[in-house]
Nucleic acid binder design. Structure first.
Length: 360
DNA sequence: AATTCGGGGAG
DNA sequence: CTCCCAGAATT
């Protein structure tokens, strides 16, 4: 049951929707069949594209059983140009099932709808709320974006975890008995004002409630969808202590992390190469001790996993061709005044080396 | 969890 | 050119 704040948000949103809702063909009826067709056509497809297809389709197939009795070729012909042709095949197959098993009427439960080909979480929610008046959320990409901004949620809305969070928030906001209008209002707001780029917050009725707008983060919500997993680099780093000081090297000013200080490290030739062996190549001498920690760190385009090993050296080390231009032995106090890489800062913290620098 | 499936429109 | 759009099925 919504609290006071939630009720206020829903009320403002519904009032805005009454005044600004676009007059779309599928909004002139709430019959389950036409709702189903419209929602299916609208999957990943913009409103203006769908309108003529929707009208032709409903004129030719006015009922579930009319669709069920048609040849697939004719259904596909009416779909030509809309894309995602599996939608048409699924629609046709589901119509046959509905005509045979449900007497030509769409089922009114989530479980039965999800069992039909081409109907997933969103479409089932849309049919249940719009055609059957049930208090169920229907969250498409537009509604998800609105919710992310309203509650300032740093989520990638395509993940399963994000979908759970968003459904909980939507259910919380949903005014009982008015899910049809509420769900469409959320989507309408997302497609007109709360757009992905350049949201028009000045004109938005929810701006007074919008946590992202208050924080100025609306352009950062939702988070961009993650592409293929960034590659993982495995590194070995040397933890070389001498007289209470730690050996640090400075990365050359040009290039990645230029000018920052870090533990001497080297990329493993293969995941199987022992870190100690890689480090001996780095220094050309000395002796590796135990592994003190394994640190994970992520950059924008790759991740690293660093095996940090104790290491002992005779005399002064040399920088054998690494990407560095300086070398220093630093006390904990001196460390605090040097700019360290994130992975190095993380390593020192994990090992309990006292530094006054920022922790990550 | 990541890919695939189409095509159109905006910037 | 890239990103985005009333997602679902498959691997």
């Amino acid at each position: 049951m919504p609290g006071q704040e939630e009720r206020a948000i829903a009320q403002v949103l519904l009032r805005w929707y009454e005044r600004h809702r676009r007059d779309l063909p599928w909004r002139r009826t709430r019959q389950p069949y036409s709702t189903w067709i419209a929602e299916t056509m609208l999957q990943q497809t913009q409103v203006q594209t769908v309108i003529p297809y929707y009208e032709r389709f409903l004129a030719r197939f006015p009922t579930v059983c009319a669709l069920a009795q048609a040849e697939l070729d004719e259904v596909l012909a009416l779909w030509e140009g809309l894309g995602y042709y599996a939608r048409a095949r699924h629609l046709h197959a589901a119509a046959k099932l509905i005509c045979e098993r449900h007497g030509g009427e769409l089922p009114a439960t989530l479980e039965e709808l999800l069992a039909l080909p081409g109907i997933g979480e969103y479409t089932a929610g849309a049919i249940l709320s719009i055609a059957f008046g049930q208090d169920v959320p229907a969250i498409d990409a537009n509604a998800a974006r609105v919710l992310c901004r309203l509650f300032d949620l740093p989520l990638d809305t395509t993940t399963a975890a994000a979908k759970r969070v968003l459904r909980r928030h939507a259910q919380e906001l949903l005014p009982p008995g008015r899910a049809a209008e509420f769900n469409q209002a959320l989507m309408e707001l997302g497609s007109t004002l709360c757009r992905a780029k350049a949201p028009q917050c000045a004109a938005c009725p929810l701006a007074p409630f919008c946590q992202a707008y208050q924080a100025g983060t609306q352009a950062l919500r939702p988070l961009p969808k993650r592409r293929t997993a960034p590659p993982l680099k495995r590194l070995a780093a040397a933890f070389v202590e001498r007289d209470g000081r730690l050996l640090l090297v400075r990365r050359r000013p040009e290039g990645l992390l230029g000018g920052l200080w870090e533990l001497p490290s080297v990329e493993l030739a293969s995941p199987e190469e022992p870190p100690a062996e890689a480090l001996s190549h780095l220094f050309g001498g000395g002796k590796a001790g135990e592994c003190l920690a394994v640190i994970q760190h992520a950059y924008s385009h790759f991740r690293i996993e660093v095996a940090v090993c104790r290491y002992t050296l005779e005399g002064e080390p040399t920088l054998a061709g690494g990407p560095w231009d300086r070398l220093r032995w630093l006390s904990p106090q001196e460390l605090a005044s040097h700019a360290l890489t994130g992975a190095t800062r993380k390593t020192l913290q994990a090992l309990g080396w006292p530094t006054a620098g920022r922790s990550l």
